[in-house]
């Protein structure tokens, strides 16, 4: 008898956990995706490729909010920096490839140079942001921290965009493709090499990111800081170092996404506006500070975008998700995956 009631008690929250709005939306989304991908497989390919990159953007945004309580408005500008790095690193590599078309190492691995450098530069900018801005503000006052840091990043964002405008002009500059090879056949669907690599890089980076947060000593320390700063300090974790790492990682990921996606979104000073908006859609949809939810949400938003663009028109891509988010927030103000426990990687 007692064991029976015990299992019942365990089952009630389990049922409530899985039979709710969140899972309903996920099931509907999965069903929609299956139907659509039978009709038009390229939509699925695009959803997975862009969704992966939005996941990197949104994951970084959620991480910075979870650990440092900073709602970053400058995240999209790191995406822009990423496209710039890719542009300047890959253009000479491209001409080298043209000069030596038989150098396979260069041809296949050359494009990654820009991506790696973008990550590094993004990380450096992140560390500088912590040193020059957030540490200074933290020293002066932690009152109204969330709003103040939001405004700080908004000011920084205008500076980034307009300095880029002054330095590189307003015209789009891009790379039509990284790998000049014919499309590859994946389960009967021809997929461009760039799309495939975008997807693989996204999945690989997300896997490393997840493992880092869950298993490594430093990743665990980051999560600890996001859950309880005092507790983390008791364990001997220095907050400053964790803050620096958090910003480095988050900004690096945003720049990486920009570098990888340049074939789709060429550099302009405001190229980051749309990824920033998407990352925020995702983060609000998933619940602030929840990295795991943000990754799932990114694919959801990517799907909504692809479907909107395909069935309605590209102009509506930014309008429709707002409607969906308003609906979700009406019913679940804390977001789809938001929970009472404050942390960056909920279990």
């Amino acid at each position: 008898m007692t064991t029976a009631t015990a299992t019942n008690l365990k089952q009630v929250p389990l049922l409530r956990r899985y039979l709710n709005l969140t899972s309903a939306i996920l099931v509907v989304a999965a069903a929609a995706m299956i139907v659509v991908s039978i009709q038009n497989p390229s939509l699925l390919v695009n959803t997975l490729a862009t969704g992966g990159m939005w996941a990197l953007m949104a994951g970084g945004l959620a991480l910075v909010f979870g650990v440092m309580n900073i709602p970053s408005f400058v995240h999209g500008d790191l995406f822009m920096v990423g496209t710039l790095v890719a542009l300047f690193v890959f253009t000479p590599i491209q001409s080298m490839i043209q000069d030596a078309p038989n150098d396979f190492v260069l041809k296949w691995l050359g494009p990654f140079a820009g991506m790696i450098l973008a990550f590094i530069l993004g990380a450096v900018i992140g560390v500088l942001m912590e040193l020059l801005l957030f540490r200074q503000l933290r020293r002066r006052s932690r009152e109204q921290w969330v709003m103040n840091t939001f405004l700080l990043t908004a000011g920084l964002s205008i500076m980034f965009e307009n300095v880029a405008m002054m330095a590189f002009g307003n015209l789009p500059q891009g790379i039509s493709r990284y790998w000049d090879v014919p499309p590859i056949d994946v389960l009967g669907v021809p997929v461009a090499m760039d799309r495939l690599v975008t997807f693989i890089v996204a999945m690989g980076t997300l896997a490393v990111f997840a493992l880092f947060l869950q298993r490594s000593r430093t990743g665990r320390a980051m999560r600890a800081v996001s859950m309880d700063e005092t507790g983390a300090q008791m364990a001997g974790i220095g907050l400053t170092r964790i803050y620096q790492l958090t910003l480095a990682l988050s900004c690096g990921l945003a720049a990486l996404a920009g570098a990888v996606l340049i074939w789709l979104t060429p550099f302009t000073p405001t190229v980051g506006a749309s990824p920033l908006l998407i990352a925020w859609y995702v983060v609000i949809l998933a619940g602030l500070g929840n990295v795991q939810g943000a990754v799932v949400g990114a694919f959801l938003v990517a799907m909504v975008q692809q479907l909107t663009g395909y069935y309605l028109a590209l102009n509506w891509v930014d309008v429709l998700p707002t409607g969906i988010i308003i609906l979700v927030l009406l019913f679940k103000p804390s977001g789809l995956f938001g929970s009472e426990v404050k942390g960056v990687w909920e279990q």
Binding site: R220, R223, D228, A232, E346, Q347
Partner: peptide, 19 residues
């Protein structure tokens, strides 16, 4: 206590051994 509410007991101990 300042525990890490979203982590398991075991993980809390691992963070405790950070140094």
């Amino acid at each position: 206590s300042n525990l890490f509410a979203g982590m398991s007991i075991h993980e809390n101990l691992l963070v405790g051994a950070y140094t």
